[in-house]
């Protein structure tokens, strides 16, 4: 497989650049906001965009993403809306786009139809945290068939053997969850994250590894950069948008992403 994700991560590898992937809930804080937010993220140094499909019961997420997901649903966001947002972004951007969502809305839409439409609209990859490798048969088949990268998650509790299976099932990259827990932890990285990432590197040989969960500062980015091919940041950015209640959050998210970028680059 070769799509925008592979291309950017290949370029990163050749130029010694650590990839920065940013997660934002699609349609949060408003449906029209997402394409402009993505533009800002791209300009500030993001390499990959993850768009969250909102779900009523996001059980791998902490309060920040639960909240952004709830408000997107209240804004009327459905999978169709998310596809429209992707199409809009694609009018003037070639940044790799990964959709991240729970399995139920995807099933309700229809797995095969979802993959076909996603590919047509310009999606490059998929992250579904509640589909482990064991349940991935049909999901993975339809994704691969449509040139979409099925990105599986690895966890600190995954055995070496599982890490190898996850690597074999994944395309694009493997999403290494930095901690045992849900998204949104902001009080620093867990102590043994470097040891865990070393183990990931040893077992995951076909795909680059991007580490995510609990990364909330340029310093975190800097500390993690030597141990992975890139990082993923979500809640910390969404929190910055949530905190700018009536204001203009663009300067804030621009500064935050630049800070992350700098943390990755100054290594």
């Amino acid at each position: 497989m070769n799509n925008r994700i592979h291309k950017i991560l290949n370029t990163c590898r050749k130029t010694n650049r650590k990839a920065l992937s940013i997660f934002i809930t699609a349609g949060f804080p408003g449906i029209d906001a997402t394409p402009s937010i993505v533009k800002t993220l791209e300009k500030a140094g993001a390499d990959i965009i993850e768009l969250g499909i909102p779900f009523s019961d996001p059980l791998a997420d902490g309060p920040t993403i639960q909240h952004s997901s709830d408000s997107a649903i209240k804004n009327g966001v459905t999978i169709t809306t998310v596809f429209d947002i992707v199409a809009k972004i694609r009018r003037d951007s070639d940044i790799p786009i990964v959709l991240m969502g729970y399995v139920n809305p995807v099933m309700a839409y229809g797995m095969e139809k979802f993959m076909k439409t996603a590919a047509t609209k310009g999606v490059d990859g998929l992250i579904v945290p509640d589909i482990p490798v064991e349940e991935s048969g049909e999901y993975r088949e339809f994704a691969l068939h449509n040139n979409l990268a099925p990105i599986f998650l690895a966890a600190p509790t995954s055995s070496d053997e599982r890490l190898k299976q996850i690597d074999a099932a994944s395309e694009g990259f493997v999403y290494c969850v930095s901690l045992t827990g849900v998204t949104g932890k902001t009080n620093g990285l867990s102590d043994n994250v470097s040891g865990y990432l070393k183990r990931c590197k040893k077992c995951i040989t076909h795909n680059p590894i991007l580490v995510g969960f609990g990364i909330s500062s340029g310093k975190d980015a800097h500390d993690l950069a030597p141990h992975a091919d890139g990082i993923i940041v979500g809640s910390a950015l969404i929190k910055r948008i949530q905190n700018q209640r009536n204001g203009d959050y663009y300067p804030e998210i621009n500064a935050f992403v630049r800070d992350l970028r700098e943390g990755l680059d100054n290594n």
Binding site: A60, D130, P132, S159, R162, I166
Partner: peptide, 18 residues
């Protein structure tokens, strides 16, 4: 694998699989 016909299974985050 814990399937009752097509139902059941283990649709959980990787962290819980072990």
């Amino acid at each position: 694998r814990g399937h009752f016909g097509k139902y059941g299974g283990k649709y959980v985050p990787e962290t819980l699989m072990f």
